[in-house]
Design a protein around this nucleic acid. Sequence first.
DNA 1: GCTTCAATAGCTAATATTAGCTATTGGTAA
DNA 2: TTACCAATAGCTAATATTAGCTATTGAAGC
Lengths: 208, 208
Amino acid sequence: MINIVIYDDHKPRRDSLEALLSLASNYHLAGSFADCLNILEDTKRLTPDLILMDIEMPGMNGIEGMRILKQVYPDVKVIIQTAFEDDEKIFKAMQAGAEGYILKTATIQQITQAIDDVMQGGAGMSPSIALKVMRYFNKQSSAKGYQLTDKETAILKELAQGLSYKMIADKIGISYFTVNNHIKRVYEKLQVHSLGEAVAIAHKEKLV
Amino acid sequence: MINIVIYDDHKPRRDSLEALLSLASNYHLAGSFADCLNILEDTKRLTPDLILMDIEMPGMNGIEGMRILKQVYPDVKVIIQTAFEDDEKIFKAMQAGAEGYILKTATIQQITQAIDDVMQGGAGMSPSIALKVMRYFNKQSSAKGYQLTDKETAILKELAQGLSYKMIADKIGISYFTVNNHIKRVYEKLQVHSLGEAVAIAHKEKLV
DNA sequence: GCTTCAATAGCTAATATTAGCTATTGGTAA
DNA sequence: TTACCAATAGCTAATATTAGCTATTGAAGC
């Protein structure tokens, strides 16, 4: 018997989730709320195994609520549900420790599937969301369409490590002026105008 | 009709995968090989929609093979299959552009599910592997032992994006001098002495 | 042989950054 | 209530960076 609590500020949706849970004999609805302001007290009282958490809610959003919850009750599973496949939100939810992420357009089968996956120790998410997560890693590997020369790459690496122009000149054994010139080319090729941007790209592109 | 090519150095497994594919009417086995040394030629000749790729193979491992493939044929889907839930391998596979990752212990249903998920534009993976991927984000974000304040973190993020002190002042709505001071503190806490180092740490710690 | 280009070296003016200070406000913990 | 500290604002001198030039050498490609 899986003990479930729902947080969702949209009443009709809360009702339909409640109906869904009551249909299956192995789910037990412990409670449902329109906001997660009292999530710690709720959790203490109702001891849910799993929480279905909306993101957009008044007072405190679901990700913030989950963050607070997880600090005290790290073992309570959380499935985030939201209206959009918002990359930013997905990543934030993951970082806050969500076990699952489903869309509000999910079918009953998809929702129960996600719950079951999570309760069996996996991650509950649709293939399309899983792909977004994977693509986050991938983003970086599509790297270097910048065709920097070897020297330019080497110097960018040193820059990205925090060395100054002079230090790079010493380390690589070329003059300060030459370092200057190489960096100039790097900036042109990367189409950036500051060290910060250049280092950011260097890291994104895994040049370091 | 989905055109599939198999790479696996283990003959019995290749045979069983072939049998599996021949069972379903919507899959067509275009070819199967014990190594991926000729993957570019194979792909040109057989034009697969999807490749089932073993990792451990003689000559060239499956991830390296996929990396080469994806440079020329980025649209050919690849599902990596391996014997273990090896975190490192999963992440490497993602970074090289895999669309799916399944275990050799996967059931026929799980394999066909993964293939279908991938061909429908999602990611093919079991919930347990999906969770590992999610946990990867988690690991990183918890990495910050620097205890920067919110403002300091925000400013560091902007710095890491390439904004100048002035631009940050404008964007955040505080004075140029204050930006200066925050960055000073950030440098102290991070124990660095240049923008490059600070941005490097920001990226390593996934503050961006 | 000619051309292109990466790598090297040099210079300079305009900005930006770094690091050294002081000081006020508002919130919070002892 | 006092003490601390994050956030804010301000100043300045010493360096560092950015971007605008010119110019030589050597290797690769045509």
